[in-house]
Design a protein around this nucleic acid. Structure first.
Lengths: 182, 182, 182, 182
DNA sequence: AATGAATGAGAGTTCATTCAT
DNA sequence: GATGAATGAACTCTCATTCAT
């Protein structure tokens, strides 16, 4: 059913996301839909959660794995994994970036950011970055901003290898300055 | 009426933005609303346009004015003006960042980004930044990402003087690396 | 204003006949419209009345003038005048036949029929037609039916000289049988 | 639901035919109405079609059955069947004649006429009537005109046995003249 | 468990009519 | 007298949700 939701979202947009259509695409009845999800909001929330967990989980693992690398290498690894995670969930990424904002706010984005910022903050602190918690939030939100803009202007942006380079340059350039600030 | 739209958007969110409610808040009848706007979409579009023009106009002017400054000073000036413009339209900024995405897509955001990226690209090229057009897009979108995230977690974020510093550090750090890349 | 009503009716149909549009086409304000007509129904009624009077008046005169002619000649004269009257009010005829039915019923058609049937009945009685009142109604309604159908399938039907012939044949054939029935 | 539509049409006229009222009279909700008819026009169209098929079907059969009768008997049979068909659908006939003109034009009447005129034309040609196609149209439209006028002045007109006689006299008188014209 | 017809509140939009200017 | 902005009741249509089968 989540797959059907995604498909409807991609093909017809958020405005056309009706429970009837989702059920139809999923090959079940509306009644069955309501046996698994109490209401439409829950359906969308589940989709968000799934995306959220995929991306956040993998990125958190990357942050963890990068703990002992030098800062530049750590950033490169994390950014690479983040992009890979989005690439592996490209349909979701596109649907959510383009139209799921229209479905119940962007609070989940904030939540995802917070979840990543904390462990990243620790990593940065260990790497000698000043005010590491703030720095982590800046890094995460700037990267998300660039990716969002890229996806909006080109749905295939995630396949562009240059994007990773830019993001690493962006993050490292910022952190470099922050490190000197120590 | 645009003010009423804004108020409804702020207080109740995009899902509760109905023509009846807007008219009610504006203290007029629905009929009058439709005398000035052909339909609901036009109402929202007018609001977006107003915001768009305020922010874009002022930022473009700042880019122009910063043409002959050294890069760091130019960035500081532009970021300062952008934030000031958003501060002067804070209610709009908040409403649009939180819920207007839900109303007809984010195409206008892309458009605004494009409008700023071109002149900024020229400025960067003159300042000796490699691949200045790409760099401009990265700078614009990362800054927007940081501001969006900041506003989402704290509606008063625009008043925090530290935000400007962070944005300047972010942009300069990135551009520094790009300059060396020449 | 009646002319404007007619024009709107012809160009856009009965569904698009709004007071605002009529006023616009007439080059006055809605307010002025309401100074001359208490409401929209009255506007349409006035138009109907005008048509009604044109056609009925001229046809009544024709009936009167045909009093002393032999039956066949009388019928030819009356039919000729009726068609001529419609031709002289062709725009109205077309508008009323195609769309004014949609505006407040066809009672006026019945009324017009009644108005013609009585004097025609007298003429027929004098010509020795049995049950002349019934005969008159049959003649009038059959002629109206043929004209209506003709106009519906071809707006230029009134210009076809063959139409008059057919109508005369129709009426005379019927009346011939009725006369023998004496 | 079609029955409810008919009832509303009869009791309150075409102007009062609203989806809400039809649903109410039908004892269902508006939603259900829209489950069976995509929109209001379709509801009315279905009603027209039903009437159209009843009348046209039976009359066509009558024309077919009358192929080998002498002309006068053929006409009598056809007229009798047409009237019987209308009598069997009296409520519909009344509703459609008085107010369905107000709902989407009279194109269907023309269509029905055309459908009958062609086979009738063949029958007339075989019976030696000159310009049988024109004659068929005249006969059909004059008969429809008389019936329409009769129904407008008296809803029980269809029950008057005299009506059939008049129609037969009308049609035969006309065709007699046409036959001589050979 | 699954179904899908039924529901009905509520959305956007129109337009005849009024009345202060 | 003329204006036309303001009104708001009424309309068509949608869709999340329920529940008898």
């Amino acid at each position: 059913m989540l797959a059907a939701t995604l498909q409807v979202l991609r093909k017809h947009g958020a405005a056309a996301l009706t429970t009837t259509r989702v059920a139809e695409v999923a090959g079940v009845s509306v009644g069955s839909l309501y046996q698994y999800f109490p209401n439409k909001r829950a359906l969308v929330a589940a989709l968000k959660l799934q995306y959220f967990e995929q991306i956040t989980g993998r990125t958190l693992a990357a942050i963890h794995a990068a703990r002992d690398l030098p800062l530049a290498a750590a950033v490169a690894h994390i950014v690479g994994e983040l992009l890979a995670a989005k690439r592996d969930n490209r349909v979701m990424a596109l649907a959510l970036h383009s139209s799921l904002a229209e479905l119940g706010g962007r609070a989940w984005v904030r939540q995802a950011g917070a979840m990543l910022s904390d462990p990243l903050g620790e990593l940065l602190r260990d790497a000698g970055v000043a005010r590491s918690d703030v720095a982590a939030r800046i890094v995460v939100s700037s990267i998300e901003g660039v990716i969002a803009a890229a996806l909006e202007s080109d749905p295939h942006a995630l396949d562009d290898p240059g994007l990773a380079d830019e993001l690493v340059t962006l993050a490292c350039g910022y952190l470099e300055q922050r490190r000197r600030a120590c």
